[in-house]
Structure formats: C-alpha cells, structure tokens
Design a protein around this nucleic acid. Structure first.
Lengths: 343, 343
DNA sequence: CTGAAAGCGCTTACAG
DNA sequence: CTGAAAGCGCTTACAG
C-alpha cells in the first residue's frame, strides 16, 4: 500500500488514469463527471468504479482553465474581529456552497490603501469579487471592469462606476434612532462613526442629524472610533469626559458600542441607560447578550449576502448591467441599553 | 474605450496578447512574470509596458496547472462566531500572504459529519489543508494521504495517522487553573467542556481533575456547552441551579465563559467572582473587555498558526515526515473573574 | 538571453 | 453514446 510512483509528491489520479483503468476514453471520464453530458449507464458505472478505486476527483483548476470560470469568488474582508463580518463570511460561505461555489479569502487592512495584495485577487481569475467592510479602490474597480469581473460591496459604498453595493437602511435607521431617543427624553446627543470617510457612517449620521434638527436639537456631538475597540473607547472617553456629556450615544456599529458601553459603565461608573443611553447598529449575536443588552438597528448579514449574490449573478449574466445600490430592510431592536420612550 | 471583443464576457489579456504587443515570444512574457528567470533588461521593459497597457496579470489557475502547485491552502473552519477562530483566520491569511499563498475557505458545521463539501477541498488541488476547530475525518485524512496533501489541525486532535496537530498547553493549563483556584480558596469545582468527544476538552479536564484530586478534591462536576453560546448558557444554568452549586467553573473556551458569566451574573444574580469564579481558555481580545474581565489561559492564535504553517512546510518538503503533535506555550492570564489566591 | 514545442488536466465541438 | 483532437493559459526543458 505504500508503493508510490515517486517516493514523495505522488500525483493524484487524473482522468487519463481513470480512463485507462476503466477501459474507456478520457472524454468519457470527463463526461461522467460533468453534469448533463451523455454517457451510457454501463460506461458511467465502469468509470465511477475506476474513479473510486483510484481516489480520483476532477482537478477543478484544470476545469476552470477549460471552462473559463472557476466557481470561486474572492472575498475581501476588512474587520474580521467584528462579529458582524464574521457572520458575513459564514453566510457567504454557506450561501455560495449551494451553487457549488467557494471563497478565496483576502483579509485587508482597511486603513492601509495597500493594493498590492489586491493584484492577486484578479490573478486568480475569480468569477466575482465581493468586498465586505472594505471600499473598492478605483484601481481594483477599473481592473475588474476591464476583465469583466463583477464586483459588489457589502456595507460600504463608493462612487466608483460599475461597483454595486448592498447595505442596510442607513439613513432611515439614523432617523428612527433619533426619534426613539427623543421620545425617551434625551436631550444631549452624540454619534460615534467608523471613519470620517465612510459613506455608510455619514449616511447614518445624516439621518440621525436630520431628525434631531427637525425637532430642535442642534447640539449633536460627533466622534470616530475607526471601527476598532480601542478607537471607540477613546471616542467614548472623549465624549463622556466633557462637562456637558451626552445622555445618548448612537454608535455606527455594535462592535464599537460594546467598547463604549464598557467605558461608560466600567471605567466611568455611569449607569446605562439611566445616565447615558447607548444604541448600536447591526444587531450582532452579542448584542443580545445579557451583559450588553444592546438596543440597536438590525442589518441582517444573511440578507445582505443574499442580495449581494443576487446582484453578482445578474452582473455575471449581463456585465453591462448598471451598478445598483441595494438597501436591505432592518428594524430598531429595542433592548435595555437605551431609555424607553416616556409614555 | 467601451469596445469589447464580445459585448459581454470580455476575456482578460493573456501572455499571448502581451507577447504580440511587445513583439516578443510568449515564453519571454512568461519568464518576466516568474521570479528568477533570465530575461534581458530590454525585453523585460517592453513586456512590462505591454502588460500594463493591457491590464495583464498572469492567470494563476493556469500556472497552478503547469507547476502542479496552486499556492492556495484550504482552510476548513468550524466556529467562526467564536472570536478565537476569527483570529485564526486573520492570522492565517496574514502569515500566508508573506509567502504569496492564499486561503480557500470552507466553513464547516462541526457537528454534522457531512463530508460531501469536503470533496471540494481536495478537488481544488490545494497545496495543504488546515483544519481549525474541526476534527479531520478519516475519509479526508485518507484522501489527503493518497494525494500527498499535507493536513494539519489547529486546536483539535485526532488519532488519525498522518494528521499533525497544533494546540495549546491543554493538560498543563488544566493543572495550573486548578492550582490557582485551590489557592483562591475554592472548594466546589466544575468544568464546562466543548463536547464529550473533544480530545482538546478532555485533556484540559484531565489536567484539571488530576491536580484537584491530588489535592483532595474529588467532587468535580462536568457539563458540556457544545461550543455554542446557548449550549454554554444551558450548562451554566444546570450547574449553578443546583443546591450545591460550584464556586469555581473552568470553561474550555472564553467564548463559552462569556455565556456562563452572563447567566451567572445577569440571570441568576450571582456576584463574580465573590460567589462564583469563572475561568476561560484562549484569551481572546474580548476577555480583556471590562465587562467580562476574564481570567483565562492564553493560547495565541498567531503562535498556533505559525506552528501550523511550519509543520505544513515540513510536510510539503517531505511528505513522509511523521505526524507531529505540537504544543504551543501559553500562560494563565489573571484578571477579575476569579478570586485571587489568599495570602 | 530567446523562441518553438510539449505538457499540466480538463472541456467541448466534431465525426462517427 | 463515444473517441480523437484542439484548446484553455501557463511553465519548462531544450536548442540555439
């Protein structure tokens, strides 16, 4: 059993090997392994048996070369430490599996605009690229356009031509949260965004601000947590350390809201929500943990991924489809981290 | 600029296209794109320029076919919702990038022993497969052996021949935690493991029990949280709901410890650590959050991944290398969730 | 240094 | 239904 063609680096069986053993042509082997090709029952049986005995499985790289599509999609992901993106990865993997596709993963430091690693994305001749928590650079978008590879962004937007995006109800959520907090009797509002440059953050802020201002609140404080734990903590210390500290903070992600909550309660000894209300965004699983019990606006990873894949398919079929900006429905999830409306 | 060879599905440029434009042979183009081949400065320059103007990047699938290695490693991962595994993914991605390799991702429901999706793992003719939080099935191991693909498990073990594994100091950690808890004056111990079948969990339990028994504590309670949030919560309710509830619980992962802590404090109103001490395992970033402030035993994702890749390389060079079981150093991280030794 | 040619392991018309 | 042959886009001896 230990005899190998070569003592090390034994090759795995190919269609040729299977054909030889089964006594059929290599094309016949190929046909039995590609769905919907005409093979007689008899030869199929012989092939299957030979394949099993050799432990054969078709070389998908070779197939990719021949068919010109790889069934793999590149996922470029920014903040894996944020449970929301972990969910996106999981959802994407599971939903893709249903159509026999797989993920080639690229983690990206979203701050560094280092696109060298992005070159590899295109070199693998993936069927599509999905960006989650990462904004498409114009270079990547251009390259994808040239080679006709669909690109869709999840939870990020850009003005780039040809880049579709899928996101939550950012503006509406901002308004809804403002409405809720006003009804809760808050008077001093703050917003902690991801980055200054993030369209997603600023859209949430716009909705938040618009509703606040239309109700006479013009004193909105803003800070940025850079989508990190420590950044959000710093922003929280800044905001809550002021004389005129906010009594309600809307954070652009649950992940940042957790850090803000920790600073408020554990570091500054403030009671949440009695002294300060905290509202997040995403509704990640941890938001419902009893420790945080976070009021938040939901944005379902499953739905975002589903919409992204649908758009991806559309673009694959017709690459000239106009880019779309798709908004996925969410809702305010009321828990204990923000004061309830006064009746 | 919008004229394409075909209105949809334009192919990306190949070496042939570049060669034509640069006025050299296709081999020359190939050489300038593979490191360490002899090309004159002049032709390299022409090639580079032609390539740029065509937006050419070498087709890695074709290269994989020709060279018989893809530079991609399959990562099969079990519990992405657990921040520890999210870290593993990130570390693996970053460390792999240094050697120009990439990850083909497979998420696996670790409970279902559904290996159908595993077939794809091998079909892509990856250079290696890494299993994190997933135990190699004998079928997968056998297939990998046959085709000479290195397999290494992270944070999981198995008796399977040819499957190497990398893990933390499971036994030693169990002992150390027992020692620490005894010194803290605890008398009633419990352990919450992943699953009954998990070797990693049972090794931690063994170390824990051994040290406890050698100090006269024979009343160790055990339960399993199945590596999920809700499972751990259930286990916690079970243990803490008894008349003779434990005053110290060692959880086999931080992720489960968080759920246990939530149940203890928020649901049952117990004070941690005054009424019950909780100790985790992994030292994920969240463990240091002020909300949990979890005492735990560290197991560095970076180190685990580093060791796994080293073993992977060894196996790639010499496939007949004996399987190894590698233990990565960790230490007790003392925070506030467990009572300190009494002086 | 350079090019022609064979080969990596598949798929897919094309005849039969 | 079946097989021979060309082709997918690369790499790699082999001559020159």
């Amino acid at each position: 059993m230990t005899e190998n063609p070569k003592s090390s680096g034994q090759r795995s069986a190919t269609e040729k090997d299977v054909a030889l053993l089964a006594g059929v042509s290599q094309s016949a082997v190929s046909r039995t392994f590609s769905a919907g090709k005409s093979v007689s029952k008899a030869t199929r049986a012989k092939v299957i048996q030979a394949a099993e005995s050799l432990g054969f499985s078709p070389n998908l790289m070779a197939r990719a070369l021949a068919t010109r599509h790889s069934n793999i999609v590149a996922l470029v992901i920014g903040h894996l430490e944020n449970p929301f993106y972990a969910q996106v990865v999981k959802q994407l993997s599971e939903q893709l599996r249903k159509s026999g596709k797989h993920i080639l993963l690229f983690t990206s430091d979203p701050d560094s605009h280092d696109n060298t690693s992005m070159d590899a994305v295109l070199s693998y001749k993936v069927d599509a690229v999905i960006l989650a928590g990462v904004t498409a650079t114009s270079k990547l978008a251009e390259k994808c356009k040239v080679s006709g590879v669909p690109v869709v962004q999840i939870n990020r937007e850009s003005k780039l031509a040809g880049v579709s995006s899928v996101r939550g109800e950012n503006f509406k959520a901002g308004e809804r949260i403002a409405q809720f907090l006003i009804a809760g009797g808050h008077t001093n509002f703050a917003f902690i965004g991801g980055t200054e440059a993030s369209t997603v953050s600023s859209t949430r802020l716009d909705g938040f601000r618009k509703h606040l201002e239309s109700h006479g609140f013009h004193n909105l404080m803003t800070a940025y947590g850079y989508n990190t734990n420590s950044g959000a903590a710093t922003a929280a210390r800044l905001l809550l350390g002021q004389d005129d500290r906010p009594d309600a903070i809307f954070c652009a992600s649950d992940y940042m809201a957790f850090a803000v909550s920790d600073v408020a309660r554990r570091e500054l000894g403030l009671r949440v929500p009695e002294q300060v209300s905290i509202v997040g965004f995403d509704d990640v699983p941890e938001a419902s943990s009893l420790s945080y019990d976070l009021t938040t606006y939901s944005q379902s990873a499953a739905s975002l991924v589903e919409a992204a894949l649908k758009q991806m398919d559309t673009l694959s079929i017709n690459p000239s489809t106009r880019q779309r900006r798709i908004e996925v429905h969410g809702e305010l999830i009321i828990r204990g981290s923000a004061r309830l409306p006064i009746l």
